[in-house]
Each structure stands twice: as structure tokens, then as C-alpha cells.
Amino acid sequence: MRTSYHDIKAIVLDRIRKDVWPPGANLPGEIELAQEFGCARATVNRAMRELVHEGVLERKRKAGTRVKSSPSRKAEFAIPLIREEIERTGAAYRYVLVDRQVIPAPGWLQAQINIPRHQKVLHLRCMHYADSHGYQLEDRWINLAAVPDAENETFADVGPNEWLVRKVPFTEGELVFSALNATREIADFLNAAAGDALFTVERTTWLNALSVTYARLYFARGYKMTSRL
């Protein structure tokens, strides 16, 4: 039976758990492991690379591969679709475009996502409802230099996040989580009182060196985010 890289990962993890290779221990070389497992060196290499990516092993030039002294896990965050999140709760999803305008990027946004002065951006505000209750207010800015097709999209029927996820790739993202005190306007959208602390996500994405979008997502009171590591 052919040994796969999944098999090798499982064996390595089992040996680490059993202290055959304790924290800080150097692993045998890829050629030696390939001979032991009866597989190609490339198969061992893939298993090692994945375990490095997952924070179990570390590799250094000329020092080989060893078990990390303090194993870590790299969090991977998929951009969620709010429609799917709401529907999973059993509620009916409803989307409303509040306003849409193409304007020169304000100064604070130029600094936030590193775009030139007078660069055109699309500014959208949208509401997402669970049944009749406000669930999320989306305040989004799209860099039209990165996503020119967005200028001709009305976003009357589909939210910008869902449209971007399906249409535009990204290579890097940044998430900032905070509790912000609601202004009177934000509070009205989310059935809160002015000054209430609302869970807020700021999300920026880039395509290589070009910023794609910056969004502030305000959630109704009681919202909980769950993520797996």
C-alpha cells in the first residue's frame, strides 16, 4: 500500500505525542524518512511543509527540521458570507442597500489603505437583517483602481461582501476586532441605544500590493463570533 503524505503526518504527530521526538528534537533527514516509509522524498517534503505551516515543526537552513519547543497553530480565517451565517440560525435573510456613492477617497482612507490622493472609491452602506431584526450594518469602501467593475454594479440585490468574495481574489487580509460605542445613527439601524458598545470588525484586503477594500461591520447587541484554530 502506497504511503501518502497524510500517513507521514499522522506518524510524525504520533511520535511527537509519544515523545519519540520530544519538543526541540531534530527529525531525521527527508532521504532517511523516505527510505523508512518507502515513499518518494517529495512526499516526505510535503508532509514536513504542512506540519511547519501548522506550527508543529520548524525548519532552518543547515539546521534541518525539528519539533517546535512551543508548538503554535496558525489561525486561518475564511471571509464569511453574512447571508449564510444568518440562514444557519434558521432566520430569514434580508438585505437592504442604504446608500451608494462614488467619491474621491477621504484623507483618512488614503492613509488607512495606502491609496493616492483623489483616488476614486465606491462607498456603500448596507443593512443585513435576520427576520425583521437588524443583524449587521456594513460600511464599506472599495478601491476602484483595484476593482473597476464595482463602479457599474448597483449592489441593489446582492451585498458587496458576497459580490467581492465571488468576483475578486485577495492575497492578504487584516482583521481588527473591537467594541465601539454606537452613534445615534448606527444605534437606530441596529435597535440599540446611542453609546451602546457594539461588536465591530474592521476588515482590509489586498491583492498583492494593491488594496481592494476596507469595511467596518457593526453587529447587533448579543452577537457572538466563533472561530476554530
Rank of each mutant, 00 (worst) to 15 (best):
I82F: 00
E174N: 11
F155M: 12
I103A: 11
A193W: 00
D157F: 12
L51I: 00
A34V: 13
Y223M: 05
W108Y: 03
L164V: 09
N114K: 12
T171C: 12
V20Y: 06
E36Y: 01
E153C: 13
R216A: 02
M1V: 05
I186K: 00
S211W: 00
R46V: 12
H6A: 11
A187W: 04
G29M: 02
A156E: 15
P148L: 08
Y214D: 01
N161P: 06
R15G: 08
S4P: 01
G222H: 04
G38R: 11
L27T: 03
D188C: 15
D196I: 00
E151V: 12
N208A: 14
V212L: 09
A92N: 07
R94V: 06
G90C: 05
A209R: 12
W108N: 15
E153D: 06
E30C: 04
D149P: 06
P148V: 10
R59L: 11
E84G: 02
R88L: 09
H53K: 14
E50C: 06
G222I: 03
Y93V: 01
L137H: 01
E153R: 08
R88V: 12
F170C: 03
R100A: 14
N152L: 02
Q110R: 15
A150Q: 00
L175I: 09
T154M: 09
V96H: 14
L198D: 00
Q101D: 09
L144C: 06
V121Q: 04
L229R: 13
M127S: 02
K74I: 11
A10K: 14
A193Y: 00
K18D: 12
E58V: 09
I115Q: 01
E151N: 13
R49T: 08
L97M: 15
W163Q: 09
G107S: 11
E30G: 05
N143I: 02
